Amino acid sequence: MTVQFKPYLYFQTECREAMTHYQAVFGGELEVTTFGDFGMVGEGDPGRVLHASLTVSEGLVLQAGDVTAGSTARTGGSIQISGSDEAQLRGWFDALTRDGEVHMPLQQAAWGGLFGQGADRFGITWLVNVAPDGN
């Protein structure tokens, strides 16, 4: 049996813009389904995203959607990315926090390796850990 964790982010109305941005950062294949695709006109703008999935070759699957009326889901969230490829992770950190906010620059961590934290322009917090063992 195969099991995967797939982070799921919620947005008010900017899911398509955010997921397109993440595709530009990470690459991969983006699939987007709108409320209108399923005839769900009671949710306001039929172009709002019901479900989006970004599959990246590095094994990341990131999913998201715009919140629905009456939903208890909260917008936002945090995602940690860990690995050993400093150049790639530094590039992702810089791209994700551009036009956002750096809470902690990517720098030497007490546990070894590098660690940084920041929020992107959509309010999602990204924690990036660069470690020789990839954890």
Rank of each mutant, 00 (worst) to 15 (best):
G100N: 00
T13H: 13
G39H: 15
G44E: 07
R98L: 05
E86A: 14
G27I: 08
G118M: 12
I81S: 03
S84M: 03
D85C: 08
L62V: 06
G116M: 01
I81Q: 03
Q108A: 15
R48M: 10
L96K: 11
C15H: 05
D45R: 04
E101K: 08
V56D: 04
T34N: 10
T97H: 00
T55S: 12
A52F: 10
Y22Q: 00
G118R: 08
R74W: 04
V32P: 03
C15W: 02
T75P: 07
Q108V: 12
T55A: 15
Q117R: 14
T20R: 01
D66W: 06
L106E: 04
R121D: 01
R90F: 06
T75R: 15
D45F: 03
T72P: 12
E14G: 04
C15N: 00
S53H: 05
Q23V: 01
G36A: 07
G123H: 06
D37C: 03
G42D: 15
R121H: 00
E29M: 08
L62C: 14
T33K: 10
G77H: 10
A87W: 01
V61Y: 11
P105K: 10
E43D: 11
E29G: 00
G47C: 06
V67L: 07
V67E: 06
L50W: 04
T125N: 06
Q107M: 05
A64C: 07
V32Q: 00
W111G: 08
L114R: 04
V32A: 00
V61D: 09
E17D: 15
L114A: 00
G113H: 04
D94I: 00
R98I: 03
A24D: 10
D94W: 04
